[in-house]
């Protein structure tokens, strides 16, 4: 038995969102009487951090503390319309809608404050701590809470805003077929190190080194964790997950998730990530969002690594021990490809 080492590389240009039929997202922002802001969205947070990121975006745009902003994604029956959480579109599309809604709500807030302070709204600014003051004269101020109370109980005004962000449907040019299916791209490149056991066909990913370019990382810790978890999902997709494992006939196959192979904590792959930031012009504060791109490049990199280790090309997923072994047998043994000398 030999453990053959292999290294695989893959890179990706990943389109953010889609717009074949148009890609809209809406957001609604309103304040309670005590000056807290609610953001209503219909894209949900599946754990990727939508709520955290849209909350940051809303607080930053409104100019209020993040603790005074609450994001509600609970119910697409009552929330504003949104296409949803998919295609890595959340941060970009929903974030842009939130900026627009929060900008309108901020304008209403400053107008209400200007009535109380008897100054022009254009001369007012926020300190991000819950106060609104006259520019250059911080002592002439009113709290956001007092402003909200006055607006709702004295002035008869809502501190609210509506926002929609729409990527127009892209029509193909009738002559050239050219179209523009996306608004911006995220990028990644990664190197996977692995071993292949030439007797059992088992592939063991030993390390991933990657660089992901995600625009501005609006919440760096969340981005890093999303990338680590997503890349691991790529490993899982490449090597383990299928509803049709191994068995020659369907009736011998699995019938529920008891038999669905997913790697557990014993299959953790060490992963070193460099996050590169190239803020996109049309993105909220430059953030594109990592989304599905976390997982995608891992799969071809592993496939390339297996080829590098034993000379077997697997053309369908997952790359099971059986497929690797059949490939090795067909080649008359493991055929390591282009191995540099001195590989660790």
């Amino acid at each position: 038995m030999t453990l053959c080492t292999g290294r695989g590389f893959a890179a990706i240009n990943y389109p953010i969102g889609m717009n074949l039929g148009g890609d809209p997202s809406q957001a609604l922002v309103h304040s309670t009487p005590d000056g807290k802001f609610k953001v209503a969205l219909s894209s949900i947070d599946l754990g990727q951090g939508m709520k955290s990121v849209t909350r940051q975006i809303a607080a930053e745009t409104l100019g209020v503390p993040i603790s005074d902003v609450y994001v509600d994604t609970a119910d697409s029956d009552t929330g504003p319309h949104c296409m949803g959480s998919f295609a890595s579109r959340g941060t970009h599309r929903v974030g842009n809608a939130v900026i627009r809604a929060a900008t309108e709500a901020r304008r209403a807030m400053l107008e209400a404050a200007s009535e109380e302070l008897e100054v022009n709204a254009a001369d007012l600014d926020t300190d991000g701590q819950g106060n609104i003051h006259v520019k250059g004269a911080p002592s002439r101020s009113i709290t956001v809470e007092e402003t909200a109370l006055a607006a709702q109980f004295k002035q008869g005004r809502t501190l609210s805003g509506r926002g929609i962000f729409l990527i127009q449907p892209s029509e193909a040019d009738p002559d050239t077929g050219e179209m523009s299916p996306v608004s911006c791209f995220a990028h990644a490149a990664l190197i996977v190190d692995l071993t292949v056991d030439d007797e059992t066909g088992e592939v063991d990913v030993t390390e991933i080194n990657s660089a992901y370019e995600v625009g501005r990382a609006l919440n760096p810790k969340l981005v890093e964790q999303q990338l680590i978890g997503g890349a691991w999902m790529g490993v899982s997709h490449a090597l383990y997950e299928t509803t049709e494992p191994y068995y020659p006939a369907r009736e011998h196959g699995p019938t529920d998730f008891n038999d669905y192979l997913m790697p557990g904590p014993g299959e953790i792959v060490p992963h070193n990530i460099a996050i590169l930031e190239r803020p996109a012009e049309d993105a909220p504060f430059g953030g594109k969002g990592p989304g599905e791109m976390c997982a995608n490049p891992v799969i071809p990199a592993i496939s390339n690594g297996v080829y590098n280790a034993v000379g077997v090309r697997c053309h369908d997923l997952p790359i099971t021990p059986e497929k690797v072994l059949r490939g090795i047998r067909a080649n008359g043994g493991a055929r390591p490809q282009g191995q540099p000398t001195g590989r660790r």
Binding site: Q225, I228, G229, W232, I268, V269, P270, H271
Partner: peptide, 10 residues
């Protein structure tokens, strides 16, 4: 225990 999101490391 199965986790779908984190990759277990954290």
């Amino acid at each position: 225990n199965i986790c779908r999101c984190t990759g277990y490391q954290p």
